[in-house]
């Protein structure tokens, strides 16, 4: 019950925050934290079954471009445009799923990178549709129907909802039948099949949730930054590596890991980019790389697991003491 109260207090605090403090840079930072919480949770869903995707930008970009193109060329409001965007994303996910879900480990990761790369190059070359490398700009016509606003505050609430929603979805998924099955598949796919789990269908469900949330984020984020271009939309650093980094640091395969990871890494990333990045181009990412190596070597479970084991469940063998003969004492 204590946890519930804590969460409610947190929620209340978050809801009223912009009223008290609305400096644009601060709001931007918090919005980015919310964005990455949602994105990392989405990525985490697939990571639950052991598939590390470094190509999630594909889903981001597909949805983002669909909604942006519909908005700019046909004047369709993103609120409606997000449906075709999601459809396109799901088609992309299905294209990825059928051949590639049977791959494991690094091969899946490579294939996911290849997938995002193909889409990026196609976006660059298909000038008629995407204006190539120049990218598209969302016209600035403030109002709820266009999802563009003069202040950051509406975006704050939109991304807050997306972040909270994705944490909720992952939480429900984790404790559901599907969640247990995904973890089983991650551990031993054959044994899972022998127990009656349709591993293909289960992984497909995970993929669709993961791609769907990512796509949704693509639509909204594009409206937030007003523009889209291939280099950025399908960029692996921002939308593939970053959530992976957040996820690992927070703790892979847990519900709150992505939250903690994003809360820690996003401000750090911003700091690194503005100070170190200004000092020397590439220095911030260099540090990122070192951090990633360091975390894997020192704390492969991320931060959440050690913390969690201090609280509850995963304590080493609460089994009653056994005597020599294996009988319970």
């Amino acid at each position: 019950m204590k946890q519930r109260h804590l969460l409610m207090a947190l929620a209340a605090g978050l809801l009223v925050l912009p009223i008290f403090y609305s400096a644009p840079y601060f709001l931007h930072l918090v919005i980015m934290i919310f964005f990455y919480i949602a994105l990392t949770e989405a990525w985490n869903i697939l990571a639950l079954c052991g598939k590390v995707s470094l190509g999630h930008a594909a889903f981001f970009g597909l949805a983002a471009y669909t909604s942006a193109i519909l908005c700019i060329k046909k004047g369709v409001t993103p609120w409606i445009g997000l449906f075709p965007a999601l459809l396109v994303t799901f088609i992309g996910a299905a294209a990825l799923a059928i051949p590639l879900l049977r791959l494991r480990g690094p091969m899946f990761t490579l294939a996911s990178i290849a997938f995002a790369e193909v889409l990026r190059r196609v976006a660059m070359v298909w000038r008629d549709l995407t204006a190539g490398a120049e990218g598209l700009t969302i016209p600035f016509v403030p109002g709820w129907q266009n999802l563009t606003f003069t202040t950051k505050i509406p975006y704050y609430y939109i991304f807050l909802i997306l972040a909270a929603g994705s944490v909720y979805i992952v939480h429900r998924l984790y404790y559901s039948a599907t969640g247990h099955h995904l973890r089983a598949i991650a551990s031993d796919e054959e044994a899972a099949q022998a127990l009656g789990i349709n591993t293909q269908k289960t992984q497909l469900i995970a993929l669709f949730w993961s791609a769907g949330i990512t796509g949704l984020l693509g639509v909204f984020y594009t409206q937030y930054v007003y523009m889209i271009e291939p280099e950025w939309a399908f960029s692996s650093a921002l939308f593939c590596l970053q959530p992976a980094l957040n996820g690992i640091i927070g703790g892979l395969g847990t519900v709150w890991g992505p939250v903690i990871g994003s809360v820690l890494m996003t401000p750090l990333g911003e700091y690194l980019r503005s100070y170190l990045g200004a000092l020397q181009q590439g220095l911030n990412f260099f540090v990122y790389g070192l951090v990633l190596i360091g975390v894997v070597m020192v704390l492969p479970g991320g931060i959440v697991s050690p913390l969690l084991s201090l609280f509850k469940r995963w304590t080493p063998s609460k089994a009653p003491a056994l005597d020599q003969g294996g009988k319970v004492r």
Partner: peptide
């Protein structure tokens, strides 16, 4: 034997 790791 192949118990699922990460699970009780």
């Amino acid at each position: 034997v192949r118990p699922f790791d990460g699970m009780t």
